[in-house]
């Protein structure tokens, strides 16, 4: 394994990562455990779980973990540049071409349709996030309070996260720690 090799593996993964970051797990398993036997399946699953519990883009976290595990800090850096290589070029090229086509009615129709799909996918993301949480009173109270703060009082996302994290942890500390 050399840095150059690692770079090209992640360039390839970036290029075939279609339909969002969620598909990265099977691709990583295929590339690093099945084909190259560099990581065990348990390691990959652990990286994936950790990636989801850390802030940031899941696919980016996953890339860093694997780069770091295989080749240290430089590995993480090289893997990061590798995975954004093709997506970056695609966006830059597409955006410059799209500028002159944006008023074409078929392009508008295409973007309208995909825009609708994005709304549907965000709704499904919310549904999935709700399914993976314990929906007790605590959940609904924090949910409604932060929604009110965001929507009615126009609080920024970051202030909302900070304020309600502190309140939530404080509540848990005061009322639930003693009952354990």
């Amino acid at each position: 394994m050399s840095l150059l090799k690692l770079f090209f593996i992640f360039v390839k993964i970036g290029a075939i990562l279609l339909g969002g970051g969620y598909v990265i797990l099977p691709i990583i398993q295929d590339e690093f455990t099945e084909k190259r036997k560099l990581l065990t399946n348990d390691e990959v699953i652990e990286f994936y779980t950790l990636s989801q519990s850390l802030p940031g883009i899941v696919a980016a976290n996953m890339t860093m973990f694997i780069g770091y595990r295989l080749m240290g800090k430089f590995g993480a850096l090289i893997a990061m540049i590798g995975i954004i290589f093709v997506p970056f070029l695609t966006i830059v090229c597409l955006a410059s071409i799209l500028g002159s086509f944006i008023n074409n009615r078929y392009i508008q129709g295409l973007l309208w349709g995909i825009g609708c799909a994005v709304i549907a996918l965000i709704l499904l993301t919310i549904r999935e996030m709700m399914q993976h949480s314990d929906k007790n009173l605590f959940f609904y109270i924090i949910f409604l309070l932060s929604l009110t703060a965001l929507y009615v009082f126009n609080l920024s996302p970051i202030s909302t996260i900070i304020i309600f994290s502190v309140l939530g942890v404080l509540y848990k500390y005061l009322f639930e720690r003693t009952t354990e």
């Binding site: 965000i122 949480s133 609904y140 924090i142 949910f143 409604l144 929604l147 909302t160 994290s165 500390y173």
Partner: peptide, 24 residues
């Protein structure tokens, strides 16, 4: 640990609220 676990349980409803506000 207690703090990390309760922090993550708190982040979930906040995350849902963030996306819900955008959807609205």
């Amino acid at each position: 640990s207690f703090f990390i676990k309760s922090w993550i349980t708190t982040l979930k409803p906040i995350g849902c609220a963030l996306l819900t506000a955008v959807i609205i």
